[in-house]
């Protein structure tokens, strides 16, 4: 579906206490993961509200994910359990707009899971590559128009 020159832009909302640490660990471990991920650090995944996720898509992100602590391990006790239904709700909101709900996901990991962070980044990037560019990704659309 997607052109071979398509490099997805992915926004990852990462909790400071887990996924952000896992990203740091992945770096320390010299693990390779795609450069498509733009990390936004949050104090907790529970800080995410649907508008955060919608704005990312509105600005042209091809995929968005929220990465919070393992269930039961939230630093603020319930933050990741607050985020989970919000992500599910936001999937419905983007589906109403006409974007595939698969472009949005929530993952759980601990700060010790550097390899998992890299795996998630790889798998999600691959998923978005398969889905192709978001119709709201103006950068890609302009490039395509110029090439034509």
């Amino acid at each position: 579906m997607a052109g071979s020159d398509f490099e997805p832009t992915i926004v990852a909302f990462c909790c400071h206490y887990c996924a952000y640490g896992a990203a740091d660990l992945a770096g320390s471990m010299r693990l390779q993961y795609p450069a498509n991920i733009r990390i936004i650090r949050l104090p907790c995944s529970g800080k995410v509200t649907p508008i955060f996720l919608l704005r990312a898509f509105e600005k042209g992100a091809d995929g968005v994910y929220v990465a919070g602590c393992m269930e039961g391990d939230c630093h603020f006790i319930l933050g990741n359990l607050v985020a989970k239904p919000r992500v599910i709700y936001a999937k419905r909101l983007i589906a109403e707009v006409g974007l595939e709900p698969e472009r949005l996901e929530m993952f759980n990991m601990s700060a010790a899971m550097g390899p998992k962070f890299a795996d998630v980044a790889r798998e999600f990037t691959e998923r978005i590559r398969q889905l192709g560019p978001s119709p709201l990704n103006k950068k890609f659309q302009n490039k395509k128009d110029q090439a034509a």
Partner: peptide, 17 residues
């Protein structure tokens, strides 16, 4: 206010698309 932002964002995306 939050519902306004969410609906506006959805409308903008849908019409942009």
């Amino acid at each position: 206010d939050d519902a306004v932002r969410v609906l506006s964002s959805q409308l903008k995306m849908s019409r942009d698309k």
